[in-house]
Structure formats: C-alpha cells, structure tokens
Design a protein around this nucleic acid. Structure first.
Length: 768
DNA sequence: CCGCCAGCTGTTTTT
DNA sequence: CAGCTGGCGG
C-alpha cells in the first residue's frame, strides 16, 4: 500500500543539484506551494524541464510519494519522455507511477474497476478504423440509410457527444435527424457493450462516470492523488477537464502547463477556454509565465512575437532571448510549386555543404537538422520528388503507423478473438481472411442468426446449417484450438502460432507485394517479445500493486500478457513507417512539428487559401488558429528560418493562382529579407522533374494567363493584378485565376467587400 | 471470390 | 492529380 506521505527518497545530505540550471521563472514554478497553478510556457521555454523537475522536487522534498501524484500528457511520446527524464533525476521505479496519457490512465482505472465500470475484465479497445467498421456493421444490421446519415458523420456525432460527456439520453432531440442519430448512438453503445469493446472516447467517458458515480472510488483517488500535473493543458477537451475535476476534488493540487498561443487542435475538440475556466473555477493564485526562450535566435522570436500579437484572444505573452538576432528570415517567392521545391532543394544542399565545411554559423551538420514544414500533406509530394531527384534522403512524417497496417490488424484480430470471441469486429475482419470460402451469403445467414439470438456472431455459428455452417464451424474451431494451444505458450510463441496457423503468412507469401507484409508480421513477433521484456510479464505485472489497492480490488488478478499486449497495440499505434535511423531531411505538417525543433526550418506554401487555409477563413476563431499554427511553425527554428510561397500551385489536378499569405504582412519588416529567386524560371521545363511528372504545362510566363483549351475563351484578357469592375462589388484587383472554360474562376480583391472567387461564366466583369 | 473500373473527394490528428 | 471506395462483372 502506498502511503500518503513518505520520507524523502534521498537520504539527507545527498547533494540535490536538482534546481541548478533553472532560471528565476522556472525555479518559481518548480517550487510553488501545494496549490493550484497555471504555467504559461512559451515555445522553447523549458516546459518539459519544469514539469519533470517539479515532480522530482515534490518527491525529493517528501511532499508526496511516487504513488501520490499523477502526470498526464496527450501522447505516449510525451509521457515516455517525462518518465525517462524523471528516472534520470531520481532513483525511481517510474513504471509503477501514474504517468501517462489521458487514455492510458483511464484504461488503467477501468482495468482496476472493471466490475464497477460494468465492463468485462478483458475489454478491448477499438481504434478509429474499428469504430467506423462497427458503425457500418450496425447500419447493415438495422438497414440505416447511409446516404442520409453518412457513417463518418455518425462517428463524428458519437465521438463529439462523448467528448461533451453526453449519453444518448442526455442529448436534446431537436429535430428528426438528431433523433435518428441518437438512436444510432444508442444501438452502437449496445453493440459495443455486448461485444465487450470500448472506443477511445468511451475510455474517457466511462472512466469519468466511474469517478462521478462511485463516491468510494472517487474519494479514494482524490485522497491518493495530492498532485495532478497536466501537460499541454490548452489541448484538453471538455471531458478531459471534467475528468480532472473529478480526480482533484478538494485535496489535489492541479499544476497545469500549457500555451494558449500554441493551441492548434480546436478542430478536434480542444478547448483553450479550459485555461480561463481553470483559473476562475479553482481561484488559481499562481500563474507563471515562462517567456525566456532557449531555442531560437532573436530575429526568429521577434517575428513570432509580432505575428502572434495580431491575435485578439490571448492570455498575453512575449518570448525573449539572450541570444543575438542571428540570421534574418529569408523570404522567397517562386513562380510555381515546382520552382519552390527546386529552390528549396538547392538551399538545403548549400546548408549541408556549409555544414560539412565546418561552417556552423551558416550551415547545418546533419540532414535531420533541417525540417520542411507545410500546412497540408498534399504539399509534400512536389518536395519529395525534388529531393528524390537529387538523391537527398528524406523522411516524411505521418501516414500509416505500425499497428494500423492491414496485415498487423489482421493478426491482431486473431489474437483478439483468442481473448474475446464476442468481438464481432475482429470476427468479421478475419473470418474469411485468408479466404476460406465464407462469402457474403454465409455471413448474412450468420448475422441473421446472431440477431435472432441476440448473441455474438461466434455464438450463433451452430445455428447455421449446410456448407456455410461447416465452414464457419471450421473457423470457430480454429480459434478455439488456438486459444487452447496458447495457454501454455509465451506471448511471442502465441503470436508466431497465430501467424502460422491462421494462414496469414502463407497468404502473403503468394502475394506479389507480400514480402513487406511478411516482414511486418515478423516485426510483430519482435514487438510482442520486447513488450514482454519491457513490461516484465511473468514476474510482477504492472498494475498488481495498484489494482489491489483500490476499493474495487478485484483480488489482484492481472491481465494476461496477451490481453495487455492488445491493449498496448490499441493505445500506442507505434511509429509511422518511413525509414527511421537514417540521417534524413524531415518533412512534416506544421501540426506534426509541434514540440520539435530544428536548426533550419523551411515553411513552404505561404499562400492565401493554403496557409491560412481557405476552410478556416470564414470564422474569426479559424483564422486565429491558423495564426497560432504559423506561430508554432516559426518557433520550431533554432538558427535559420525560410519562408516561401509560389504564384501557382497544382492542387487537385488543377493549377491554382495564389497570392502571398497575409501572414507576411503581420511580421516585422526588419527581420525579413526578401531573396530573389536564384534560377531563371524557364529552366525547369528542361529538368528531370517535368520528365518525371510528364505534364504538359507550358513554360512559365511572367503574368499568369487564364488558359482556355480553344485559346479564345471569353476572358482571355484577364490577368492577375488587373483592375476590373463588377456591377455589385465595384472596382477590384484580380489576385488569382483558376480553371478554364466554364469552370474558370477569378479571385478578386474588392476594397469594400473583401476577396471573392467569381465564376467567369456568371460574373460580369469589365476592365477598368 | 476476386479483380477491375468508375466515380468521388480532397485541412490539420492523437488516443 | 491520385488515392480510395463501392459496385458490378467474370
């Protein structure tokens, strides 16, 4: 049993050294009294250091025992980093501590109190894909119109409701569509409950309800957790904040760390407003700003500060540094996205050459010190091509992660069925994969039988007669025999056994692109093995100590290694593919770059409509979030920052004509250095690029011309930059042109009415 | 049961 | 342009 207070971990007299190297702001934050606090941690201000040192300090001074605090993050990566750094500071068994992601910690709570939470002990977790297929299955079963209620939209509705802690009964059925969605939500819940699975949102909501509805459990944890430390507080959603409130009660001190200027996830439910709510609701007395930046040169910070000052909704903060101004920000305009990519490649090569010559001032030593950032994933392609053509290794972030790949999900489905045969999602995924002659017909029969029985597909198999029945029974027997066989095996052996006996490996052996997949499956075996090694199964599984200490104390039973591994696979999707290890240029979206830093950063595609993105221009909040995104992008750079945009860009198979981003106007002139394009635009029709793309784009001409196929379209005279007259909006400037023929549109900036896209086949325009 | 083709749809993403 | 989904035909 973990006591509430324990003697300090260090023997008296041990030189702490813990608080050395902290600046005044950081020291103040780290050593705050046991009360609620909000730390506004600017980019590069040593946020993680403050958080981990705070924990170490609390432990070291004996104010709390390792079991008496909880530290919450959003990503596994952040949780790991915190645990690792803490472990380096103090001799601790970090694994036993409650440091983890919201979902990881909720999972832990639900595992400990599964009975009270009304879950099976071995409940499994649905990821986003699984959830969608569960919803689609529901649609089939109940004949729901997927045109009128697109499954994706329903998924969004369900997840959104859960984030607001709303069960179907809590939602106001304002109209018939909402009523229908509520009904689907209800059916979905029933299905999940029957199958013993929970989705990500459910993990949080169920855990919240567990605390809310069980006084003993709530009081137990409130008494236990004297300190709750939350990372990236600006990213919390409504439910996460409510969950924290349940845990903190009257005793727990909340130490929230965040940066409202880096709130870029409103689109997925994050509520920056939680920061203000927290200050108000808890009467927070300690609010500390960490404004000293240890990452970037002065010019970069000036640029970031100036840009973000254009946002109205801010708590207010200004980054400063002791470093000199450093290099100016280089700004480049190129004629097209190809030209931009090619310029970028040349600039990167130059940086690397300078770095090789030991010129640390203007160059970079490693390719991985260079990051190329863009607003949307589609922009990576041109850049990849350009890098590929000159043979520069690069790594693209994003894309499918290890546990999300089809072959891995198939293998996991078999493993899940061993653990829980009622998991219909997994059942359907592999009942006929590899093919066993069980077609749609047979499955329909089975699903009918299951519906009649109100049972899982697995349990309805005996009802199906004929050939279909025989085949289905064969499958069920296979799973059953795998289950029996696995009882005496190690996790690694179980996985190997499943891969062999399911026929998965055999299946991919005969497939043309199966080699990679087999390799991944082998990697899964390794993952299983290292999971056991790291988690130390077979000895003391993590959780024993805490599961036994709660009021629900389920006799200290622990999850089987298999069940734990499956949970791990759901909660941590793993790395995304791209060859790690090799020194390579880093390509990623601005979102993906949050929290990272690089010597040299290129922010590309700084064009109206792209960055800021057109979909966010309709609202004030949307634009402010784009600006914060730009702020995040700028503050990734340590020494060198490049900003670039292109006059034309290929998007969705169409050439778009863009104007430079408004963000340029929001940055100080003295830090920006506009650089002329180094190569003549004509050059690229002759290089490897175009050959590779095989396009028929005309050699570039200085002012964009609206091309029509016939060459004599009605609006041939329109040019970017021209003054035109519109009957309703008056005089304006042409700032963009796209499409041709009847689809042709012009983007025109009217002084009175703002910038508008007008269809040329409709709008009446006359030259001024 | 598999493979092909037409049609559609395109921000940002972690768990 | 390109990747994915769903429907249909062999």
């Amino acid at each position: 049993m973990q006591g509430m207070t324990q003697p300090p971990i260090f023997a008296p007299g041990t030189p702490p050294g813990l608080l050395d190297h902290l600046n005044a702001e950081q020291l103040h934050a780290v050593t705050l009294p046991n009360e609620h606090a909000l730390i506004l941690a600017g980019a590069g201000s040593g946020k993680t250091r403050v958080l981990t040192t705070r924990i170490a300090w609390l432990l070291h001074t004996g104010q709390v025992s390792p079991g008496g605090l909880m530290a919450v993050t959003f990503t596994n990566k952040a949780a790991r980093e915190m645990a690792t750094r803490l472990g380096a500071m103090l001799p601790l068994n970090v694994r036993g501590m409650w440091i983890g992601t919201f979902h990881g910690l909720c999972n832990r709570l639900l595992r400990a109190h599964w009975k009270l939470a009304n879950l099976p002990q071995t409940f499994q977790i649905l990821d986003t894909q699984d959830q969608l297929s569960a919803i689609k299955r529901l649609y089939k079963q109940f004949g729901i119109d997927d045109e009128r209620f697109p499954p994706k939209q329903t998924q969004w509705f369900i997840n959104g409701s859960k984030e607001d802690a709303l069960r179907p009964d809590d939602i106001d059925p304002s109209d018939s569509d909402t009523r229908k969605k509520i009904e689907i939500y209800q059916l979905y819940e029933k299905q999940c409950q029957r199958e013993g699975v929970v989705d990500f949102g459910e993990l949080l909501l169920r855990s919240y309800e567990l605390l809310r509805d069980n006084d003993a459990v709530r009081q137990h944890y409130q008494l236990r957790f004297r300190h709750l430390l939350i990372d990236e507080f600006q990213d919390t959603n409504r439910l996460q904040y409510a969950w924290l409130k349940q845990l903190s009660g009257d005793h727990g001190a909340i130490f929230a760390v965040g940066d409202d200027d880096q709130s870029i996830y409103a689109f997925r439910g994050a509520r920056v407003g939680n920061m203000a709510d927290f200050l108000r609701e808890y009467g927070v007395r300690h609010q500390i700003k960490l404004e000293k930046n240890y990452r970037s040169c002065g010019a970069i910070l000036d640029t970031a500060n100036d840009l973000i000052s254009h946002n109205k909704s801010r708590l207010g903060k200004n980054l400063r540094t002791d470093q000199g101004p450093g290099e100016p920000i280089r700004v480049v305009e190129q004629a097209s996205d190809f030209a931009e990519a090619q310029w970028l490649v040349e600039e990167v090569r130059q940086l690397l050459r300078d770095g090789q010559n030991g010129d640390g001032g203007t160059g970079v030593a490693l390719r991985s010190d260079v990051a190329v950032l863009y607003r949307s994933n589609a922009q990576s392609r041109v850049i990849e091509t350009a890098l590929f053509n000159v043979g520069l290794p690069y790594r693209v972030y994003g894309g499918l992660r290890f546990f999300e790949r089809a072959e891995i999900k198939h293998a996991l489905a078999y493993l899940r069925l061993i653990e829980n045969p009622r998991d219909d999602t997994s059942f359907l995924r592999v009942v006929n994969f590899p093919a066993r002659g069980i077609g749609a017909r047979s499955l329909e029969q089975l699903q009918d039988a299951a519906r009649a029985l109100g049972s899982a597909l697995n349990d309805a198999v005996p009802q199906v007669t004929g050939k279909a029945g025989t085949l289905l029974t064969g499958f069920v027997d296979l799973i059953e025999s795998l289950r029996q066989q696995s009882s005496g095996l190690s996790l690694r052996e179980i996985v190997q056994c499943v891969l062999e006996r399911s026929g998965l490996v055999e299946h991919y052996r005969t497939e043309r692109e199966g080699a990679d997949r087999i390799e991944n499956l082998e990697e899964l075996v390794n993952a299983a093995e290292s999971f056991v090694a790291i988690e130390g199964f077979g000895r003391d599984a993590p959780g024993v100590e805490w599961a036994a200490s709660g009021p629900d104390a389920d006799t200290g039973e622990t999850l089987s290694p298999l069940a734990a591994f499956l949970t791990h696979a759901s909660l941590e999707a793993g790395d995304n593919q791209a060859q790690a290890g090799q020194d390579a240029i880093q390509l990623m979206t601005v979102h993906a770059a949050k929290g990272l830093e690089f010597d040299a950063v290129f922010i590309t595609g700084l064009e109206e409509g792209l960055f800021p993105h057109e979909n966010s221009l309709s609202s004030f909040e949307g634009l402010e979030e784009e600006r914060r995104l730009m702020y995040v992008a700028i503050t990734r750079a340590r020494k060198r920052l490049y900003l670039s945009h292109a006059q034309t860009r290929m998007l969705h198979g169409q050439t778009r004509y863009n104007i430079p981003s408004r963000f340029y106007d929001e940055m100080p002139e003295h830090t920006l250095k506009w650089v002329a394009p180094r190569s003549a635009p004509q050059r690229w029709s002759a290089n490897a690029f175009d050959a590779r793309r095989g396009d028929d784009s005309a050699p570039w001409s200085d002012s964009p011309v609206l091309e029509s196929k016939s060459g004599k379209g009605a609006h041939d005279w329109l040019r970017s930059g021209m003054q035109v007259f519109h009957n309703k909006f008056g005089e304006g400037t042409v700032v963009g042109l796209e499409g041709n023929g009847d689809d042709a549109r012009a983007q025109i900036s009217f002084p009175r009415h703002g910038t508008k896209w007008l269809s040329l086949s409709v709008a009446k325009l006359t030259p001024v």
